[in-house]
């Protein structure tokens, strides 16, 4: 039995199994947004590693087969972006402004608070990618002096918090328009926000997907340039 723990593909299989189980849990809880399959998956893998006392590097010998697929998957984001851009062309200016200024505000706030309250440059730099959908955040955080694993954690937590907080804030602002809700969920809560938008309606989802990929693209191009200037 124990020999399996040293077999890289065991960890690949375990990760896939944990994700599938996560999907089942998500379905059984009636698509509870706060319990996305990725969260259950991460939890199950972490528990297994702890119980078997397996170091992360051993796990990654199998995990990297899945991890390496992230790069072509980022390229793939061009497809939904193209389809949505074509559909939402008439609203382009407003979307561009909301995506640019909205994401800049939330990231600047997070970066500034982290520098002020914690003062660990690595954590502040990792905060810079908090509004970028996870695969892209993981891809660029290294260049910014951040850590990929923490970047993933920040993005996922932001998504969960966003799903809890964004709709009540918009309700307080007396905003219920599907376009606004979609854009805000996409900019501030990325993929998890987008799956919440899918529950709300097609229009919300279209705006959320657009906002998520536009924010990711913009930040992926601008942040490394900004950081290389300073």
């Amino acid at each position: 039995m124990m020999i399996l723990l040293q077999t890289p593909l065991f960890w690949t299989a375990l990760t896939i199994g944990a994700f599938l189980l996560g999907q089942q849990v998500y379905r059984l809880t009636g698509n509870l947004v706060l319990l996305p399959p990725i969260l259950t998956g991460i939890g199950l893998v972490v528990v297994t590693l702890k119980l078997t006392d397996t170091p992360y590097t051993t796990y990654m010998e199998g995990g990297h087969y899945l991890h390496d697929m992230l790069q072509p998957l980022i390229v793939m984001l061009a497809v939904p972006l193209f389809l949505q851009l074509r559909a939402l062309r008439q609203d382009a200016l407003r979307i561009a402004l909301a995506v640019t200024l909205g994401s800049a505000t939330t990231v600047a706030c997070a970066w500034w608070l982290t520098s002020w309250w914690i003062g660990d440059p690595m954590l502040s730099q990792t905060m810079l990618t908090k509004s970028i959908t996870t695969p892209v955040a993981v891809a660029i955080t290294g260049q910014l002096g951040g850590d990929p694993s923490l970047a993933a954690a920040f993005v996922i937590l932001s998504g969960l918090l966003g799903v809890i907080m964004i709709l009540p804030i918009l309700t307080l602002m007396r905003i219920q328009r599907p376009e606004t809700v979609g854009i805000t969920l996409g900019v501030c809560a990325h993929a998890i926000g987008t799956s919440r938008a899918l529950d709300l309606g097609e229009r919300e989802a279209a705006y959320a997907i657009t906002a998520m990929i536009l924010t990711a693209t913009l930040h992926a191009v601008v942040l490394p340039l900004l950081v290389s200037l300073f």
Partner: peptide, 20 residues
């Protein structure tokens, strides 16, 4: 076929939080 399972590919890097 790949978009619905995209989060699967993010599990390995996310599990790395245990190193922190």
């Amino acid at each position: 076929s790949l978009a619905p399972i995209l989060p699967l590919f993010l599990i390995p890097v996310s599990v790395g939080v245990i190193t922190h």
